[in-house]
Design a protein around this nucleic acid. Structure first.
Lengths: 375, 375
DNA sequence: GCAAAGTGGTAAACTGTTTTACCAGTTGAA
DNA sequence: TTCAACTGGTAAAACAGTTTACCACTTTGC
């Protein structure tokens, strides 16, 4: 196929310096200046405006001219220069995805799922995706503003930010098309597309309670994150509804990481030795917790149940496979991308979407063990 | 901080329609046409060429003019329009990262690590990163060529492609700045930055052999991938060196996935019930294999050792923690990005770098069990 | 029969930079 | 002194598109 394509490419363009590539096989120097709109116009004996209008399917142009020009464009392999198009046309057709610069942020499956969704949808809608990792100094240098001021992008998707990231206010205030993905900022009029963390957490809690668990610990991420607050609330509401008093509500910060989850699990176990279940605010923390349990000789789920949140791909391949809440991250990214583009085009104003989540039961949960004195 | 920034922004630019934002708090309509080079020139009473030269630190301009113009630029908050710069200056300062469109490719930690490295280095070198996911139809539509022809990017990093991806030839032949990351194409004069899979595999094999393992199975990815072929060779060479005959070399394709790894493990066990070790060509396959072992009642590492390759972050948090080969993916991505930019600038011609790998011993390996009849 | 509206197209202005060719004034050397 | 070289700067062309104002020529309506 490579062969075939190259042959096509070699005899296709009848243009430029026009030298037939007789010496095929030798590396063709890319001096070959590409065909421009002006070249096409000249060859077709029409004005550049006409060619441009043909390209943009402007009805002003007659059927005959349309066809004539199109054929020529095809024949010479003309491709409009995106940069020139952007310069005059107000849009770059590029959107950026921004993540906080943690340790190798893009290696996080959570972000990866969202980004995959964004990328797929962007492609379908004729847009390109740029990735940005926001270190503190990045923000201090106002690079986030430059993204728009210097016309790198038309819009921006925010992944993994929370109420503490004050720089988001700069973006909102300037009225740039910006969306928060899978989180929302109550203090900012910032559009968002999120998944229903509250609903998912409620399902999980009622499932755990049904299994007889009453000593449940929660490991969650930063409470500056609105969706994590929703999780905490659902957790507390669940326990309260079965009569567990607030002082026995156990919440630990697991910093969204495996290591944090392990540490939080340890802390929870020391706070309540009778713990029979640990609810992780995401799968990574849950896996860290599970790892800790195994290390200290607790069998999951026989001695203690562990649950996660997000349903990232490999939760099905840990031992035991993790009971979790499915969060449609891929779809969420896709929808966010679509809404952002709508916003860019001025088709909608404020974005506010919620996607459903649901419980996925696997092997890390079981009926609460009898509370005996052996522990 | 958001507050502070906005105040700065509100009284900074003395430009455009010049209306003071008296009605602060109301959404400022972004009609505020940005300051252009021409505006700055007019205000400074110099030519646009002068301002441009100041910006580009051209020594032609006197110290006095330099300072005068710089101050003005600062005061009015002028930022050069990147699109216009690209249009005239030959470079876009954007590089693309391309991955094959598998299931949610960006959610793969392997790619994520590489991309994180690329992104960090690109930022430091003043470049932006675009992500592209190459479906078959993407290639059929020649979108990979358009990336260059339409001037979306200056260069391209290829992640996860192999000898079967013939379209790479199109790119090479046209002489575009393209690099393969962590793999190489023997048939193509395609530059690359890779990690030493052969060396890592050799270390792993000598470690396993030292533990007394002789019945070792290999689960690897597509043999169209050169680095996986290196792995296979090292595996075979290792076994041969201790006198294991070729017909007892057991290789299965695990398709780089957990599920594939599990299936391959099953197949290996059936081919050789005396198996005491499984060498996974990447961590995902190893984890799939380990999951399978546990499911069929084999204890890792007591009954069977399992090892991985890559050392992705959460291998330390599975049960048992995985013995693997550390592959500096993040650094590899970074170096590849830097080399690509060198290539774009014409500073180097053919890229060919190899990064070292090393064994990481954790808990999934142990001395080979006695070969008894119980299995 | 004649003004108004519609058709299909064009020339030129515009987007915001970089770069090149040129120029006036100063300095240096023969 | 006189030509050459240097200094600091400018005007204008280039980059490759889109968009606008206008134009000549039919149609249409009354």
């Amino acid at each position: 196929m490579a062969k075939k394509l190259s042959i096509l490419a070699a005899d296709g363009p009848v243009v430029g310096n026009g030298l037939a590539e007789a010496d095929a096989g030798l590396a063709v120097p890319p001096i070959h200046k590409p065909v421009s709109l002006r070249d096409v116009a000249k060859m077709a004996n029409v004005s550049v405006a006409t060619v441009s209008m043909v390209l943009n399917e402007n009805p002003r142009i007659s059927r005959a001219t349309q066809i004539k020009v199109r054929r020529l464009i095809e024949r010479v392999g003309y491709k409009p220069n995106r940069i020139a198009q952007s310069l005059s046309s107000k849009y770059t057709r590029v959107v950026a995805v921004m993540v906080p610069a943690l340790r190798h942020t893009f290696a996080d499956v959570y972000f990866g799922e969202l980004i995959s969704g964004v990328c797929e949808r962007a492609g379908k809608l004729g847009h390109k995706v740029m990735i940005e990792s926001a270190k503190p100094e990045y923000v201090k240098d106002n690079k986030h503003i430059e993204l728009f001021e210097r016309r790198y992008v038309d819009g921006l998707l925010l992944l993994g930010f929370n109420d503490r990231h004050h720089f988001l206010g700069d973006l909102v205030q300037r009225g740039y098309p910006v969306l928060s993905v899978n989180n929302y900022m109550p203090d900012l009029s910032l559009g968002h597309v999120s998944c229903d963390y509250r609903g998912g957490a409620e399902q999980m809690m009622s499932y755990l309670l049904q299994l007889g668990h009453r000593h449940i610990g929660l490991i969650c991420g930063a409470p500056e994150t609105a969706t994590q607050r929703d999780l905490i609330e659902a957790y507390k509401k669940g326990l309260t509804s079965v009569g567990v008093s607030p002082e026995r509500h156990l919440v630990e910060d697991g910093r969204f990481t495996e290591a944090g989850g392990a540490a939080a699990a340890e802390s929870l176990l020391s706070r309540d030795p009778k713990l029979t279940a640990v609810f992780g605010g995401n799968d990574k923390m849950a896996m860290g917790a599970m790892h800790h349990m195994t290390r200290v000789g607790l069998r999951v789920p026989h001695d203690i149940s562990v649950t996660g949140f997000d349903d990232i791909a490999h939760t099905a391949f840990v031992n035991p496979a993790l009971t979790t809440v499915h969060v449609p991250l891929y779809e969420c990214g896709g929808l966010a991308c679509e809404r952002l583009i709508d916003r860019i085009r001025g088709r909608i104003d404020l974005v506010d979407d919620l996607m459903p989540t649901h419980l996925v039961v696997r092997d890390s949960t079981a009926i609460a063990p009898e509370r005996d004195a052996s522990r």
